[in-house]
Amino acid sequence: MGVVSLKPDYEQHIEIRDRLENFHGNQIVYLHWEEHLSFCAAICFPLPPDMPFGAMVENVLKPHYAAHPDFEKVDWAAVKWTVDNTEITPDMETSLADNGVGHKSLIRFWTPGLHGYKSVGTC
């Protein structure tokens, strides 16, 4: 494994561009609403690690998904969450970091009973 390079110390000279310290105190967080693929991919935000999970939901997640016709029907108490493929029951009062959300973590959420337009799962 590993890159085959002209110089043996290639690894000493690399510049990892997405290191946490390059984001001015924020960390990168990805959000994804399952079965609502009219949002083509997970969406990406630079957020402070000490932002409460609940504040992220109210101020980041909701405004960006509000355009979807299903949005108004979401029962937020019933939403299922995973962080980096681990199921969690988020504590809305504590920080992203306390809820296990790190730099470049992926938060996926399912809204029971809602499968997008015509329940196709791709809209």
């Binding site: 990805y30 994804h32 693929l37 009219s38 949002f39 083509c40 991919a41 997970a42 969406i43 990406c44 935000f45 960006h64 355009a67 016709p69 992926l106 337009y117 015509k118 196709v120 799962g121 791709t122 809209c123």
Partner: peptide, 26 residues
């Protein structure tokens, strides 16, 4: 899988709510 998506977007356009993704993608 895909026709329904375009039909949904067409309805949204008709209602004056053309669908944009206002966040940046992963």
């Amino acid at each position: 899988y895909y026709r329904p998506r375009y039909e949904m977007w067409r309805e949204m356009e008709k209602d004056g709510k053309r669908f944009y993704n206002n966040a940046l993608p992963q």
